Computed example of a mutant assay.
Amino acid sequence: MTAQKGRDLLLKVFNSTTFAYVTVAGLRSRKLAFNASQVDVTDAESAGRWRELLAGAGINRAALSGSGLFKDQASDELVRSAFFSGAILNWQVVIPDFGTVTGPFQIAALEYSGQYNGEVLFDLSLESAGQLTFGAL
């Protein structure tokens, strides 16, 4: 497998008006992280005093983040309104030559910034809010 272009990693949000996923405009960087908590079941009789974990007992979660240029497009309004209403929307991450991760996420942080001699930037953080699915490309 050859190296992939970072710009091909896409973050999309489901638009319930058009019934289609819309790419979030202006993103320069995107990140998808998976985490799983562990359940420690170590006790005084654990072999060699090594930590023991209970398989399949922890909680899985995913976090999405991105940052880029504020473009004031339709996807920006969709993101803003979802943040202010606390809505949980369906999001999709397209990982080039690998697959898609799709599911419900809630916006945990939305930040805007800008300097007097530069463009308006935004940062976006999302947390999974239910089961995610993976689809191979």
Rank of each mutant, 00 (worst) to 15 (best):
D8G: 00
D8Y: 15
L9T: 09
L9Q: 12
L10N: 03
L10R: 14
L11Q: 07
L11H: 13
K12A: 12
V13L: 12
V13S: 08
F14P: 04
N15E: 06
S16D: 12
T17A: 13
T17Q: 13
T18L: 03
F19C: 05
F19M: 03
A20L: 04
A20Q: 13
V22A: 10
V24K: 05
V24T: 01
G26Y: 09
G26S: 05
L27H: 07
R28H: 08
S29M: 06
R30Y: 02
K31R: 09
L32K: 01
A33G: 09
A33H: 00
A33N: 14
A33L: 02
N35K: 08
S37Y: 04
Q38C: 05
Q38D: 05
V39L: 10
D40A: 07
V41P: 06
T42C: 02
D43S: 14
A44C: 10
A44H: 07
E45N: 09
E45P: 04
A47R: 02
A47L: 09
G48P: 00
R49S: 10
W50C: 04
W50T: 07
R51D: 01
E52K: 15
L53V: 14
L53H: 02
L53A: 04
L53P: 00
G56D: 10
G56S: 09
A57N: 05
I59D: 14
N60G: 14
A62D: 11
A62C: 12
A63E: 10
A63P: 00
L64C: 10
L64P: 11
S65C: 12
S67E: 14
S67M: 10
L69K: 14
F70A: 15
K71S: 10
